[in-house]
């Protein structure tokens, strides 16, 4: 599928072009989903740092399962939750590579919690992009470990009852307790200012790896309008009004 590039009229300078690290493949994310923004930010960071030719990405199982089609760099597809272990294997085998994982909340915080915690604790010199949209998107909107109390999902039709299924898991806070990680931060992309902040955080997380500082994780609180069953603008508002109450933004750990 090729993208038709708009013709630039004489005298005009294009300021918003496709990052070099992205392929021509059109994203498969739903309209209004924050994944699209985040995927693009990762590509921009790779471009900015000039590391495309030595970057290896790990695609998760979840909404970003096709990630390897979107990027112009080497990619491994990991089993659900195992991205940090796969990244460890790649990075240890070839430390010259820049290795990143891109995982959702089900992948990273439920089935892959052990792999994530231990990679962080080892201070594995990798970059982790963690998209927290409080739901299993691809499989049809089931409860995630990050699902908010009272939030309706297909597996909590009456809303998440914390007495039955526990509380939203604050993965970044947990990881920030460990001595291993170099950088743990929580960002969002619901408006331009936050997109720019998230972009800076992602660049920093990759730069840390280049400088050998160790495990860096950027959590991004995102919206899934499809499974919230609300329009994209409302979904963004939902992030600010609901999700951020449980997942406050900001740096949780910065080791310099």
């Amino acid at each position: 599928m090729s993208v038709v590039e708009a013709k630039v009229p004489a005298g005009f300078v294009p300021v918003y072009t496709r990052p070099k690290s992205l392929s021509e493949k059109r994203f498969t994310y739903c309209p209004g989903c924050h994944h699209g923004i985040i995927t693009r930010l990762v590509a921009e960071a790779i471009d900015e740092l000039g590391i495309q030719e030595r970057t290896v990405g790990i695609a998760p199982v979840g909404c970003a399962v096709f990630l390897y089609e979107f990027f112009r760099c080497d990619f491994a597809q990991a089993a659900h939750g195992r991205a940090c272990a796969v990244a460890t294997g790649i990075k240890r085998a070839n430390p010259d590579l820049i290795v990143f994982t891109y995982q959702g909340d089900g992948d990273l915080a439920a089935i892959g919690a052990a792999e994530t915690i231990h990679a962080a604790n080892r201070g594995e010199n990798i970059t982790v992009i963690f998209v927290n949209n409080q739901i299993y998107g691809m499989t049809g909107g089931e409860m995630a470990p990050t699902t908010l109390p009272g939030m309706r999902t297909v597996t909590t039709p009456e809303g998440r009852d914390v007495r039955i299924t526990g509380y939203p898991l604050r993965m970044s806070e947990m990881l920030a307790q460990l001595d291993g990680p170099a950088y743990i931060t929580r960002q969002a992309v619901f408006d331009v200012r936050h997109v720019q902040m998230a972009r800076k955080a992602i660049v920093k997380a990759f730069k840390n790896q280049i400088e050998g500082k160790g495990f860096s994780l950027v959590e991004i609180v995102a919206a899934c309008p499809t499974n919230l069953h609300i329009p994209p603008v409302e979904a963004s508002r939902w992030v600010t009004e609901q999700a951020l109450k449980y997942f406050p933004l900001g740096d949780l750990k910065v080791r310099d």
């Binding site: 990991a78 089993a79 272990a85 460890t88 790649i90 240890r92 070839n94 792999e115």
Partner: peptide
Amino acid sequence: VFLQAESEVAAINMVYGAAAAGART
């Protein structure tokens, strides 16, 4: 590289990563 993983599940996925990077693992 010798690495004691957190579980067998992690260990085999580290093998997957190292093999993908071209190492005998």
